[in-house]
Design a binder for these strands. Structure first.
Lengths: 223, 223
DNA sequence: ATTATATCGATAAAATTATATCGATTTGGG
DNA sequence: CCCAAATCGATATAATTTTATCGATATAAT
């Protein structure tokens, strides 16, 4: 029978999980594993097997074989294509403070299809320097470079006070997607997407869960 | 009438949004604003007003006044109490590489009720040094310090190869909550919670949305 | 060749989360 | 004092996401 037709839009939750699958699959490939079942992959990434199966159905044109599973190499290629890693996304970064420089020097992004081509800052002392082979320019150079190189993704690592200004600058230069690490809500016009890397939000969830654990532990003790 | 009784467990999505409300509320307080409506707050954080109302109902014992809204100062206190910011959570950090040192030097955590008390690493060159007044110890000192200080939260900023080892070390020392920045899935025993700060996942969503935008733009053009 | 089993894809059910709508209430202006 | 406007809390509806279950199928063992 035909494979069921794919949903019109990919669930965001599925997209979020893809890099995790990829990490696990790449590790298996390194170990020489040729086939992997959805159950094994689920255990590897710590998820329910049904979720994994559904997600794989989104990316993989080929069906898994019963009793065997999926061909690891083929699956890696499918996930990478699905995530667009086959053609690298260029990005610029605004705010070359400590966090900005940390991202600039992070080598792992190339495994996720991202290439930061340059950074920008207002601090005269930083302008002209570089990190990890990536140069830091004054913000006045941003529009030109972004336009000339056709960059579509911008990363904001400024203090929160400067985040909206940085965003406006990026959008004005033609950026269509913004990855915001500053702890601030930023507004963008239609046709531009924002993703906030909100560490405070993660921390809040974790603290909350920690508190629940501790409350439960206390209740059991006193019971 | 009585306020509706709260749900048995707080929705995770609500917890995630709380720090955003807090940021906005604190900013309003700085500006001397005394009352704020759910509609205004929603606009400030970029969310639907109904979501905001529901979330506020979770934290606030007092009802908002029609036509006026909520008292900002009281609401801040309520959200802070809800998130447990009234008593600071101590944490230790394992892996004092560039990312680890960036977190150590980030002053913003104190606004979110977090205090990193010490860091640990295996690199002899880092041991004995410090960042931002926080000392870096050898990992052999971890269990003792964690036990003695009663720390319950551990932050992992090691390379991915060392993440599971770091986690085991933390859990062995009595840590109950792990905030993992390494790009790896880590396993913990029951009674311990993990939260992965997975930048690759965020990036994947953003890239996906960017691609959708570009596809739509192309379709419109060619239509 | 036959059979037991692991795994698949699909469908159905449940849980979670988001959005829309509505009457009730309080304030501030006429 | 009374009415219009804004906002509240609550309920109902919709969308999304997760989990459970089932028949089908290919492999490996007998």
């Amino acid at each position: 029978m035909e494979r069921k037709e794919k949903p019109v839009s990919t669930p965001i939750a599925s997209v979020r999980r893809m890099p995790g699958y990829l990490r696990c699959l790449r590790a298996k490939r390194e170990d020489g594993v040729e086939f992997i079942s959805s159950v094994t992959l689920a255990a590897c990434v710590g998820l329910n097997a049904v979720v994994v199966k559904k997600d794989l159905a989104l990316v993989s044109g080929v069906a898994g074989k019963p009793k065997i599973g999926f061909a690891v190499k083929r699956l890696i290629a499918d996930v990478e294509r699905f995530l667009g890693y086959d053609n690298v996304t260029d990005a610029v970064l605004v705010g070359a403070g400590q966090l900005g420089r940390t991202l600039l020097s992070y080598e792992g992004f190339k495994n996720y299809g991202l290439n930061i081509v340059a950074a920008f800052d207002v601090n005269e002392e930083l302008i002209g320097t570089g990190v990890n082979g990536k140069r830091i320019f004054g913000v006045d150079k941003l529009a030109n470079l972004v336009g000339r190189m056709g960059v579509h993704l911008g990363i904001i690592t400024t203090p929160k006070e400067a985040a909206q200004r940085a965003c406006d600058l990026l959008v004005g230069a033609g950026i269509k997607a913004v990855w915001n690490f500053a702890p601030a809500h930023i507004k963008v016009p239609d046709g531009v997407v924002v993703r906030n890397e909100d560490m405070a939000a993660s921390l809040a969830v974790l603290s909350n869960q920690l508190r629940n654990i501790q409350i439960n532990a206390t209740e059991v003790k006193t019971k």
